[in-house]
Structures are given as structure tokens and as C-alpha cells.
């Protein structure tokens, strides 16, 4: 049964369309990921779900509630960690937990929560003095005080070091295991792979893929980027027919081929066979952006045109 339903969501800021015709549903008990580069509209989409932004079009229901018209009801069952938001700098951890507890009719006991999140030693510490990881754990604690049915975590681990990130992932799993449905916004493929049951890939305000992480990775076939400057020009057609090649682009005299390990082999043997000198040859694992290009099947699509900045 779906607990979050988003249908035909559209949100524009002036001339910029942040989210366009986005639809997805989240099943109860699921960890659902929203993955995408900066400016893909991820935050805008979840802020519409949280009732912080009014959609221009579309229909959203969270546990049956309309986030705008039934905002009061929504806040009772939704726990939220916002991407860029703080607490009062001089408020201590204990005071923050006590104050936020008072907002709910039947709040969770914050003591076991603090224990589980490893914040006992910080109870008397002021928010402004906490480390990035401690702040995020406090935000998690605060978001869980109302015993939410759904929790939204927006870039929960973006500011954390790898170790703190791993620890936070385990926490998210524990929270989910205790029965909370989780909507997770991230731009880390690894994070999505580790935590999410299903992932919606956002690109330029649209959902371009929606599947389990395994399926997405399997279908994403450009895992390697090969670039070099050939001593003699090479025809595009020949390059595009290389095994595993997903896209061939040119940057002046430089050729950029996206593909997989098979492509690497084919390129190296082609260089030997054709007796070409490949200057500045680089073979690198594809970044997340490359994976997106592959997922969007947008060979030749120009990602640099994406509007930057987090909406």
C-alpha cells in the first residue's frame, strides 16, 4: 500500500521549471530514494511533499493528507530533516529535544533515542558547538520525536566524513526497521545503492528512471570514460560501433568515449591496429553524472546546460 503518492507534480520559480510532471509512489515500510545531480529538483519535490512549497500542478497525498490543505494533520505523522536549516545556536541538545517534544501530543521518549544516536555526551552542549555529524544525528532525533510514519531526509550525509556517513546509513536502516517509511534525497549513488529499496532518478526536474538500485546499475552501461587526442582523425561511425560504447563526443581534437571495460579493450587494440598515437589518453571510472547520462540515454545531451543551484 502506498503511503506517499505524487502525481503530475509541477513547480516553477519564475521562468525556471524546477519540477515537471513528476510522479512516484512510496510503499509503506519502504526506503525510497530520490537521486539526482544538484539542481535536478529533488529538494523542491520533497518540499512539496512536506507542504513547505505549494505545487503549481499535480496531486500529492501523504498517508491520505494533502500537504497544503491538511498541513496540520501532515505534521503529526511526518518527520523532516531539512537540507539547509539549523537550530538556535545557543540551544542545548537537551533543550532542543524538550522543546520539540512539546510540539507533539504523544511524543517519543527522547532518552532512548539519544542513546541510540550516541548523543548522550552532548546533551548539555549547545547546537552551535556540535560537529557536523552530531548536528545531523540531532536532526534525525528531532525528526523522530513525533513517532512519524514517514521520515524525509534531505542530503542527510552530504556534509559528513565517510565514517560518519557509514554510521548514519546504519541509523537510517535501524529507523526503517522500526517501521518508519523513509524518503531519502541524495546525490550519492553509493548511498542510494546501500539504503534504498527503490530509487527515482531525477534529471532537470523530471523522473528519468525509477527502479531498484540493482536494476538501475545493470542498465547503466557507461561505467568508463575514455578520452584521448588521436594523431589522425577518426570517423565517428567507427568509434560508435565499438563494443559497449554508449556515446562519442568531441572536444576540439579530443575524443571522449563512454562505455565499459569492453570498450577500453577495443579502444586500446584499435589504437595499436591503426597505429595511432593517442595523446593524453585517460581512462577513468564514470562519475555519477556519467551514469545519469547513460540512464537518460541522452547520448550527446548537454548536461552543462542544467540550471545549477539547489532548488
Amino acid at each position: 500500500m502506498s503511503i506517499v503518492e505524487v502525481e503530475g507534480l509541477r513547480k516553477t520559480y519564475g521562468a525556471v521549471t524546477a519540477v515537471d510532471d513528476v510522479s512516484f509512489t512510496v510503499a509503506e515500510g519502504e526506503v525510497f530514494g530520490i537521486l539526482g545531480p544538484n539542481g535536478a529538483g529533488k529538494t523542491t519535490a520533497v518540499e512539496c511533499v512536506e507542504g513547505l512549497r505549494v505545487p503549481d500542478a499535480g496531486r500529492i497525498r501523504v498517508a491520505g493528507f494533502d500537504p497544503i490543505r491538511e498541513h496540520d494533520e501532515l505534521t503529526k505523522i511526518l518527520g523532516v530533516q531539512l537540507q539547509a536549516s539549523e537550530l538556535q545556536a545557543k540551544l542545548t541538545v537537551r533543550e532542543a529535544l524538550e522543546m520539540y517534544s512539546a510540539f507533539y501530543a504523544d511524543p517519543a521518549d527522547w532518552r532512548p533515542l539519544v542513546e541510540r544516536l550516541g548523543l548522550e555526551a552532548q546533551l548539555g552542549q549547545r547546537f552551535g558547538k556540535l560537529s557536523g555529524g552530531q548536528k545531523q544525528r540531532l536532526f534525525i532525533a528531532v525528526s523522530l520525536l513525533g513517532n512519524p510514519r514517514v521520515a524525509v531526509f534531505d542530503e542527510l550525509t552530504a556534509a559528513l566524513d565517510p565514517r560518519a556517513r557509514r554510521e548514519t546509513w546504519q541509523l537510517v536502516r535501524d529507523i526503517n526497521a522500526s517501521g518508519v517509511t523513509i524518503l531519502l534525497v541524495t546525490h550519492f549513488m553509493e548511498e542510494a545503492q546501500y539504503l534504498c529499496d527503490r530509487v527515482a532518478v531525477f534529471d532537470r526536474g523530471r523522473v528519468v528512471a525509477l527502479d531498484t538500485p540493482d536494476a538501475l546499475i545493470k542498465n547503466s552501461d557507461s561505467s568508463v570514460v575514455i578520452s584521448f587526442r588521436p594523431s589522425t582523425p577518426l570517423p565517428d561511425a567507427g568509434l560508435q560501433s565499438l563494443p559497449g560504447a554508449v556515446s562519442v563526443t568531441r572536444d576540439g581534437a579530443k575524443v571522449v568515449i563512454k562505455g565499459n571495460d569492453d570498450t577500453v579493450q577495443a579502444v586500446t587494440s584499435m589504437i595499436v591496429r591503426e597505429r595511432i598515437t593517442a595523446r593524453q589518453l585517460r581512462i577513468v571510472d564514470a562519475t555519477l553524472d556519467d551514469a545519469f547520462l547513460s540512464i537518460t540515454a541522452g547520448a550527446g545531451s548537454d548536461h552543462s546546460a542544467t540550471v545549477q543551484g539547489d532548488f
Binding site: E50, G51, L52, D72, T75, K76, L78, V80, L82, A84, S85, E86, L87, Q88, A89, Y100, A102, F103, Y104, A105, G146
Partner: peptide, 13 residues
Amino acid sequence: ERGILRRMRTTPA
């Protein structure tokens, strides 16, 4: 500026 008012909008307060 620090989003403290905003955070409060996501709670019943």
C-alpha cells in the same frame, strides 16, 4: 536566515 522558522513549519508547532 538559518531556517529555524522553516524547520518549525514542519512540526505541529
